[in-house]
Design a protein around this nucleic acid. Structure first.
Lengths: 109, 109
DNA sequence: GTTTGCAATCGTAAATTTACGATAAACGAA
DNA sequence: TTCGTTTATCGTAAATTTACGATTGCAAAC
């Protein structure tokens, strides 16, 4: 596009969109679910579980980290990933807010 | 990318990703909130409320419709948009499921 | 210090997204 | 029928996303 106009939306809208965008790929959803299920969350294990190359998984992890949903901790030669508690709390707040704001009723014309 | 590998993920993961992707732009979040707030949901009013051109708003509406989150009904020369009750129920189910599945606890290494 | 193994980054290519103006299509009104 | 209003679509351009192999960087082990 010619120019981004994101700055014209509210902070909450942008944050929610950023989080939703991070969730907007099945690989990243799968990664989050794997991180939630296992205690161990080493990058290499994720690669084994996913139908993607190491570099692609690493890229998805980077995006989840950029969105604040995941954090990584160096553990020797490995990196241990896990859900970022603060970021996920914010995601929970924003997504929950949207679910509350858009009630499950038909208000169509 | 060379090849899409979405088919290697579960149906639920793909559906959730599709919904999240649709929510992954502040304009679309804003549109959904406007549709929830107002009863009237004519396309032209959305254009007036948003810092985007008519064609761009129409394109965002098309994506929301493709994701099943919104439905449009022709009303004379106008089109009346509203939240799609069935699609939003599915979104609620999948997002709610993710919120439940990833508890707000730090399980990091 | 050298090697080994794991993960991040680089370089690249193809597909998709975003945005806009211009045009077309659809409908009611004159 | 013709005109004006409203919305969708087309055409286009720039930016971003997705994916992979190859390379680099890093930390422990030897």
């Amino acid at each position: 596009m010619a120019v981004h106009k994101r700055e014209q939306f509210t902070e909450a809208e942008q944050q929610l969109a950023t989080i939703a965008k991070a969730l907007g790929h099945p690989a990243r959803v799968a990664i989050l679910k794997l991180l939630a299920k296992r205690q161990a969350c080493v990058c290499g294990e994720l690669v084994l579980e996913l139908p993607l190359s190491q570099s692609t998984v690493s890229q998805h992890l980077k995006e989840l980290k950029a969105a604040g949903l995941v954090q990584g901790e160096v553990d020797g030669p490995r990196v241990c990933y896990c859900i970022d508690p603060a970021g996920w709390a914010r995601a929970r707040q924003l997504l929950g807010g949207l679910l509350a704001e858009l009630p499950n009723t038909n208000n169509c014309c």
